[in-house]
């Protein structure tokens, strides 16, 4: 290194900047649109590739022809396959009420949805049955957040 490249860190200049885009609008896509319509109707969407149920719908099936799947309503039963308890927020602050987050799948399905389970941490376990609780119809937008939360189903 030549002699001048010995500046102390304080001598170096930093420029602030940001990503220049105001916002994004993401389209739901072909089958995503059908899924959005199901969600708005208070139904959980899935996709059938032959006899195989896949969550969430993805338009094309994982086969050698990349064939189109069929978007269908999934009636359940739904299972919280994985559960975790959240006790702190993004910034490490303790939550007043711990929150249960689960990976929810349907019987016989590949894939699933992430969702909040309204239950106390002591009452949840992997493999428990749950069912969706939708937002009121007028609040639904066709997004996955139309499912307000999932609640345990008594066995």
């Amino acid at each position: 290194m030549s002699w001048w490249k010995r500046a102390l860190p304080g001598d170096l200049v930093h420029f602030p900047g940001s990503q220049e885009v105001d916002h994004y609008l993401y389209t739901p896509g072909l089958h995503g649109l059908k899924a959005a319509e199901l969600l708005k109707a208070g139904k959980v969407p899935g996709m059938l590739c032959g006899d195989q149920l896949i969550l969430p719908p993805k338009t094309f099936c994982p086969d050698e022809r990349l064939s189109e799947g069929e978007v269908v309503e999934v009636e359940g039963p739904f299972i919280a396959a994985l559960v975790t308890v959240i006790r702190e927020d993004f910034y490490g602050r303790k939550l007043e009420e711990p929150q249960v987050l689960a990976f929810i799948t349907a019987q016989g399905a590949i894939g699933g949805y992430i969702g909040v389970v309204k239950a106390s941490p002591g009452d949840v376990y992997p493999g428990m049955r749950v069912r969706p609780v939708f937002r009121p119809e007028e609040e639904r937008t066709g997004a996955i957040t139309d499912i307000a939360f999932w609640e345990p189903v008594a066995d």
Binding site: V13, P16, Q19, D22, L25, P28, L33, A36, L39
Partner: peptide, 18 residues
């Protein structure tokens, strides 16, 4: 469109001039 998602990124940087 049903299912359209609006998202506003907030990415801030500090660029080193070297």
């Amino acid at each position: 469109l049903p299912g359209i998602i609006r998202y506003k990124p907030s990415a801030r940087y500090l660029f080193a001039a070297g």
